[in-house]
Amino acid sequence: MTAVLTADAVSFSYGREPAIDSVSLSIEPGEFVALVGPNGSGKTTLLRVLLGLVRPQRGTVTVLGEDPRELRDRGRVGYVPQRHRLDPELPVTVAELVATGRLARRGWWRRFNTEDHEAIDHAIDAVALSGVRKRPVAELSGGQQQRVMIARALASNPDLLVLDEPVAGVDAESQRLVRDSLGHIVRELAAAVLLVSHELGAVADDLDRVIVLKRSVLFDGPPDELAARGVSLGIHASDLPLWLEDLG
């Protein structure tokens, strides 16, 4: 099975200070992987390198077998940025915003066909927002808005979904709904998911692997192995933040 994402000895520095140093990792199709680390550990930099937004100074990255900066079919990668503050006066509906995610698959200049509209509806269904598809996004709660962003990334039917802190600052019920949506994506759509988050309690049961980063990879393995080190993701959800704090 070909990995959907690989990083081989990747390094990147801002000035003299290395943000990430010789990071290697791999994600297989359908895997649900969490990337965690204390503040300043290089998570955001690594994400930017993996998504092809910046070129690594050393090492190589492949996404779906290609250099991410030259990926031919961009629709195969979905990206949910860190909680995006939407303009509260923005008159854009859920369906309109999710439809912008389909441009990656269809081509930005082409008119949508039936398949595109079905993909958009399916993405909205996958995050349980079909009841509000015609509502302005600004009228939704923070958690609902975050699920709209996930639906936007899903609209292109990605093989790899990358989420940057998708549940930060949203209420417990929304966290549960985001978890359900991610579980659905992994099970039903067979997409690989890379989740960057401090709060893994909500998704602990669904994770295949956890990668702990502090400039370089400190741990890469299943949640059980992390638990064997005294770090519980589920029942004692506060273990991980405390452990990360110790690392920082």
């Binding site: 998504l51 092809g52 937004l53 990926l71 961009r74 629709g75 990668v77 990206y79 949910v80 940025p81 995006h84 939407l86 923005l90 854009v92 309109e96 915003l97 439809a99 912008t100 995610g101 441009l103 990656a104 930005w108 200049w109 936007r152 990334a153 292109s156």
Partner: peptide, 20 residues
């Protein structure tokens, strides 16, 4: 280009990742 322009003005970072 209306839908693509909307995508850019909403979130240009996500639009770049999407290859727009």
């Amino acid at each position: 280009a209306g839908r693509a322009l909307l995508s850019v003005v909403l979130d240009d970072g996500a639009a770049r990742v999407a290859g727009i």
